[in-house]
Design a protein around this nucleic acid. Structure first.
Length: 946
RNA sequence: GCCUGAGUGGCGGAAUUGGUAGACGCACAGGACUUAAAAUCCUGCGAGAUUCAACCCUCGUGCCGGUUCAAGUCCGGCCUUAGGCACCA
């Protein structure tokens, strides 16, 4: 066993003493490569098994790039503002600084022990005033440009934590940290108007090489929806209100409106007789936490406020309700409700017995033999389908047409002024003879069926009604001979219906009759809609928007789900805001030379009664500077402030004049490879894009998108296949134990060999031993004396293949397959007596990014006295990879029957001949007719026989 | 409910544009070395049928169907699972 302890210690010392990985940031002579890891929060428990995974991945790429001649920037730092340090301060009364620094020291030591190639001279921490000076400075610019605002707005308030939370810190109505209930409350808040960036954020996603899932999450989070504003006048008042809708085409079906209980108009238009009821409902909603609201949203609640709105399109008076299913914070806080075509409105209308008007009808179009024929006339018809249940069994009445072998429900035309129900009863009697019929209901939504009826040579345009009922008894009369000749009665089991019914129309009916019908939310043809009749959804939306605009009662409108970013927390351990409130109530922002505004030391770090801890800093709070007097803002910035721009600061961490030198930024941005956990898919990665986008607009960042390529490492699970954590501590793995017992190189190799970087995968202790065994096997090979300055033709091809595969796979982050190829190579070398020096050196370089310590040692054993870190990356010769002969498979009817060896330039006829003559092929072709021989050059031969 | 992914041996996982499924590793089994064990080296290892044995044969990438000379890979319909969103009008 090679002595990993001694070797690893030796080389870490060497790198540190020789400053091997210090980046010469001003050296623009080489191409640059910026590899970035998501910096950790320095918690007290130190690194966990997941950290080294992503960090090793960037480490491998940066080491390879360095050897390929790039100037590499691979920095590390600490996101050191955060809740645990605050809680520690509250508990002990000590400043979080000391606690944080101690943790950082542990982290640094642990990171160093794994042998990453970080430039430790550029470490930053977000809680360092030298760093947060510039966080404050950027915030100041946002304020001066009108993006940072102090406004009154409803916020997520968590009583337990005593602070406001952003939407992504609230999960299911509970705080992300601690799981405490969160309620909505109106408060004056510092916010950043991120909605102003929405379009640019969406467009930027098309430019970056990110996982599709992450892009999709960001798009959903931005939540762009295109629709229209429609203005409704309130009857008998001069008031009007706007609603936002994506379905203005259904306006003719709007049978009521709903406002959020908090809507400003509610109090003004509620009629006197409804005031008490409305007040009571508003109070109920206000005291409900978000949690209760989500839990209770199973059933719709609401109150009619007595007022009516005028539907602009037909001047109908429709009632106005308030309900908490309409959110004050989205759209205009009011909606038009179209119960026929919206699930939520449907549910509400059912409960409050509000009319439902169908304005869209499903339009079934025949295909194949029943496709509409242009050259035939169209006949219109109105029919009813009768879905009749058996009196005792779970079966439905169908008729089996003898001539066409169709099975359908009883169906027939509606005649004169007959109702669908009457027509159904009549048809059932006529066609089946059953007389004891009870019709329960007519389905709410009619539909159209369009098809070509071959036996009558006409196109049918049928309006279909559907009734559902049952037989009370099997009482039956004789049916006419004519009817008998056409069809037989058949009872079909309910779960067979969908398989057995012959037409799409009847299957659609069965589906609706057997389940609750609900709203019709698909596309269709407009009906009951005046000038929209006959149009489909898309056409109708355009037509309606034009109409609204012409008549001054609405307009096209884009809406976003994303809201303002609440940018203040009632906490101590965060960046103080550079804001002062003057006596006249106006806001004063600090001069640049007053930055950084440093956090004061406190005796008591707890905020009392929901107030910010900085309220306790009585002297600090008072502001008196150059004759300006006021009170400082006591909230601090959220945790995501510093991390929103830290990647820029790494480039120039000690600059005291600006957040980073512009020339350096121009050279080094964007980040070429960014690796971190998927949990930051929206939060941090969105905020960073917003800040960078803003700085780009100001000309302070050279690129629109800061992270060119992004990859999320998967989670490393416990050996039980479950997430490591407090729940199953016996399955958790501490990476430092692995470093101690097996070595850092083994840890790195193992974590990279476990599987694809992005997949989550369970830990396997025997796999760790396997990784160590491989390194030991390599080490023994280099000690064996096989390495000679000779050539060995047997290894030529596999060596060049290995160089190519490893280079390509490192580039595409396929570390597991790269390592697999290195194992294959070593296995091959073991079978040989001579390991040419050239290949031995090349292999050490390939392995170096994964296992840097042992390879430095091997490099030294090969006679080098300088680090391998800058040795030139091995190259391969494509010509040596191409094999002059190749074994390919011969299939007969798609099944492999033999393999033949062909030479690389062999012509097709010769290959064909060889294939046909192969022994086992002859067995399978004997006595059969050879239909076709397919030869795919260099790949496969397939012989088709009959 | 909606949006993304993912389902391959005992296990982690490989398989270019469709072209010999199971690379590599782990586990397991056998052998060599050893007084013995460990370590190391070599060999085997999807399931089944058959055979003294080898060849050979059948089945096999979540399920059902389709396209193709050829499907883990493409298409349609399901099932399971992970992550995200969730009264967003």
């Amino acid at each position: 066993m090679y002595n990993f302890e001694k070797i690893e210690k030796k080389w870490r010392k060497y790198w540190e003493e020789n400053k091997t990985f210090k980046t010469d940031i001003w050296d623009f002579s080489k191409p640059k490569f910026y590899a970035l890891d998501m910096f950790p929060y320095p918690s007290g428990v130190g690194l966990h098994a997941g950290h080294p995974e992503g960090y090793t991945a960037t480490d491998i790429v940066s080491r390879m790039k360095r050897m390929q001649g790039y100037n590499v920037l691979h920095p590390m730092g600490y996101d050191s503002f955060g809740l645990p340090a605050e809680q520690y301060a509250v508990k002990t009364g000590n400043n979080p600084n000391g606690f944080t620094d101690a943790n950082i020291e542990t982290f640094t030591e642990q990171l160093k022990s794994i042998g990453f190639d970080y430039d430790w001279s550029r470490v930053i921490k977000t809680s360092d005033p030298k760093f947060y000076k510039w966080t404050q400075w950027i915030f100041k610019q946002l304020y001066l440009d009108g993006y940072a605002k102090y406004i009154d707005m409803p916020v997520n308030w968590c009583e337990e934590l005593g602070t406001v939370l952003s939407n992504d810190e609230v999960i299911d109505g509970k705080s992300e940290r601690g799981g405490f209930p969160v309620v909505r409350r109106n408060m004056k808040q510092w916010v950043i108007d991120q909605v102003a960036f929405a379009e640019r954020l969406l467009a930027g996603l098309d430019e970056v090489d990110w996982p599709e899932s992450t892009k999709e999450m960001q798009r959903n989070w931005i939540g762009k929806s295109i629709g229209a504003h429609v203005v409704f006048k309130v009857k008998d008042t001069d008031k009007e209100f706007k609603v936002f809708t994506t379905r203005c085409d259904t306006l003719f079906g709007a049978t009521y409106c709903v406002m959020a209980p908090e809507h400003e108009l509610v109090d003004m238009i509620t009629t006197d007789d409804k005031k008490d009821e409305v007040e009571a409902y508003k109070k109920l909603c206000a005291t409900k936490s978000d949690l209760e609201r989500t839990e209770l949203n199973k059933e719709k609640t609401g109150v009619f406020i007595g007022a009516y709105a005028i539907n602009p399109v037909n001047n109908k008076e429709i009632p106005i309700y308030i309900s908490d299913y309409v959110l004050a914070s989205y759209g205009t806080g009011a909606i038009m409700a179209v119960p026929a075509h919206d699930e939520r409105d449907y549910e509400f209308a059912k409960k409050f017995d509000i009319p439902i008007i169908q304005v869209l009808a499903k339009n079934i179009i025949g295909s194949g033999d029943s496709a509409i024929r242009e050259d035939r006339p169209i006949t219109e018809r109105e029919v009813v389908n009768a879905i009749i249940k058996h009196p005792t069994e779970d079966k439905y009445l169908c008729v089996h047409n003898k001539k066409f072998n169709w099975i359908n429900f009883v169906m027939g035309g509606i005649e004169g002024d007959e109702s669908p129900t009457d027509a159904a009863i009549r048809e059932v009697k006529e066609e089946t003879g059953y007389t004891d019929i009870i019709i329960d209901k007519e389905l709410e939504f009619l539909y159209f069926d369009n098809f070509y009826q071959a036996q009558k040579e006409v196109n049918r345009h049928i309006t279909c009604h559907t009734v559902v009922g049952k037989l009370n008894s099997l009482e039956r009369i004789e049916i006419s001979e004519e009817e008998q000749a056409i069809a037989d009665v058949e009872w079909i089991d309910s779960n067979e219906l969908l398989k057995v019914l012959s037409t799409e129309a009847h299957r659609y009916d069965a589906l609706r009759a057997l389940n609750d019908e609900g709203a019709y939310t698909e596309d269709g043809t407009h009906i009951n809609s005046g000038f929209l009749d006959g149009l489909n959804e898309e056409e109708a939306i355009d037509t309606m928007i034009s109409w609204l605009e012409e008549n001054n009662c609405g307009s096209r409108q884009v809406n976003y789900r994303m809201r303002e970013w609440i940018f203040a927390r009632q906490r101590y351990w965060g960046e103080p805001m550079p804001i002062v409130y003057l006596e006249d109530g106006s806001i004063h922002i600090l001069d640049d030379n007053e930055l950084p505004l440093v956090l004061p030391e406190l005796k008591d770090y707890k905020g009392h009664g929901g107030k910010a801890p900085l309220e306790n800093a009585v002297d600090w709070k008072k502001y008196d500077h150059k004759g300006i007097k006021g009170v400082r803002e006591v909230s601090t910035m959220p945790g995501s402030a510093g991390s929103s721009w830290y990647f820029l600061r790494y480039i120039d961490p000690d600059n005291e004049e600006e957040f980073a030198n512009q020339e350096l930024l121009k050279h080094w941005m964007p980040v070429d490879l960014y690796i971190g956990g998927p949990e930051h898919a929206v939060g941090h990665l969105m905020y960073s894009r917003i800040w960078n986008n803003y700085l780009y607009d100001k000309g302070l960042s050279p690129v629109k998108e800061p992270f060119k390529k992004l990859v999320h490492q998967g989670m490393i699970l416990g050996s039980n296949g479950i997430k490591m954590g407090k729940r199953y501590p016996e399955f958790a793995v501490n990476p430092l134990d692995i470093v101690k017992n097996y070595g850092a190189d083994t840890l790195r190799l193992y974590e990279m060999f476990m599987g694809p970087l992005e997949a989550s995968k369970p830990w396997n202790q025997q796999g760790v031993e396997g990784a160590q065994k491989f390194l030991d096997r390599v080490y023994r090979l280099y000690e064996s004396g096989k390495i000679k300055e000779e050539s060995n033709k047997n290894l030529e091809k596999i060596y060049h293949q290995t160089v190519k595969k490893v280079t390509d796979d490192f580039e595409s982050l396929g570390f597991n397959t790269a390592i697999s190829q290195m194992m294959i190579f070593i296995n091959a070398v073991y079978k040989e007596d001579v390991f040419p020096l050239e290949y031995a050196e090349g292999f050490v370089k390939l392995l170096n990014p994964v296992a840097p310590h042992i390879t430095e040692e091997l490099w030294e054993m090969l006679g080098h006295n300088e680090t391998i870190a800058f040795a030139s990356w091995p190259t391969y010769d494509e010509a040596k990879i191409i094999e002059d002969t190749k074994e390919i498979a011969v299939q007969v009817n798609g099944k492999v029957r033999a393999t033949i060896t062909i030479s690389i330039d062999e012509d097709e006829d010769s290959i064909k001949n060889k294939a046909l003559k192969a022994e086992n092929v002859l067995k399978h072709t004997e006595g059969k007719e050879i239909v076709k021989v397919i030869v795919i050059k260099g790949k496969i031969v397939n012989i088709v026989v009959k």
